[in-house]
Every structure is written in C-alpha cells, then in structure tokens.
Design a protein around this nucleic acid. Structure first.
Length: 126
DNA sequence: ATTCTAACA
DNA sequence: TGTTAGGA
C-alpha cells in the first residue's frame, strides 16, 4: 500500500529524475527556493522538497526568474490568496512582455524581408 | 562511490 | 550555471 514511491531522495536522485545538475539544485537552495534537511552536511530531500522543485522548474520553463518563483513559493504557508494574486500579476506581466517581443520580432522580420526583396530586385537589374 | 563548500569561468 | 579542487 505505497503507490507514492519513496519520500527520501538524494540530490543525485532529483537531478537525474528532472534532468538537471546537482549544481543547479544547490544553486536553487542558495537562493532560498529549497531548504532540504541535512544529515551532517548532506542534503536529504523529501516529497515536499521534490514538489517545490517541480514548481521551480515549471516556473523556469515559463520564463520566470528565480526571484519571481521565490516570491511565489514564499506565500504558500502564509497568504494562499495573496499567492494567487501575485501569480496572476506575474503571469500578466510575462504575457505582456512576450507579446511585446513577438511584435518586435515581427517588425524585424518585415524589415528583413523588405531588404531581401530589394536585394533580389537589384540582382535582376544587374 | 557520493556529496559538500568554495572559487573561478 | 558549469567546472574543478580538496576534503569528509
């Protein structure tokens, strides 16, 4: 009766499972995103830590800074409601930034296509 | 073998 | 973050 798997993990276990380096995991801890237990100096990760790591990696995939992710995770124990508000705010900011970048890219592509068209016309005249 | 800290790239 | 050194 244990469909949950282990609840104790070594740093290498998590690194392997999520395809990241042990260095990255220690780095996240140094930034306050993780706080695994210690047995001496060795880190012992539990399901709770693993769950946080999953959230960290998801946040990264979506382009959020470790700072943003940290601020978000910090609200888990306190204001769960404020956490949702912060998330909404950050997501809106992220979407706004991506849309701006998309517009800039489209503008650049249009310019390059125009240059390319002019280049072809010159070749034809030559 | 594995992990840890610290420092440099 | 990767890599490397040196130790537990």
């Amino acid at each position: 009766m244990e469909p949950e798997g282990r609840d104790l993990f070594a740093i290498a276990d998590l690194a392997r499972e999520f395809g990241i380096s042990t260095r990255a995991i220690r780095f996240y801890e140094s930034k306050g995103l993780l706080a695994p237990e210690r047995v001496g100096a060795t880190r012992i990760f539990r399901r709770r830590d693993r769950a946080r790591l999953i959230l960290i990696l998801r946040g990264k995939r979506l382009g959020f800074s470790l700072r943003d992710i940290s601020d978000y995770l910090s609200l888990y124990d306190a204001d769960r409601t404020q956490q949702v508000h912060l998330l909404a705010e950050k997501v809106d900011q992220r979407i706004a930034l991506l849309e701006r970048q998309r517009d800039d890219l489209e503008t650049t592509i249009r310019e390059l296509r125009e240059i390319r068209k002019l280049a072809d016309e010159r070749l034809v005249k030559s």
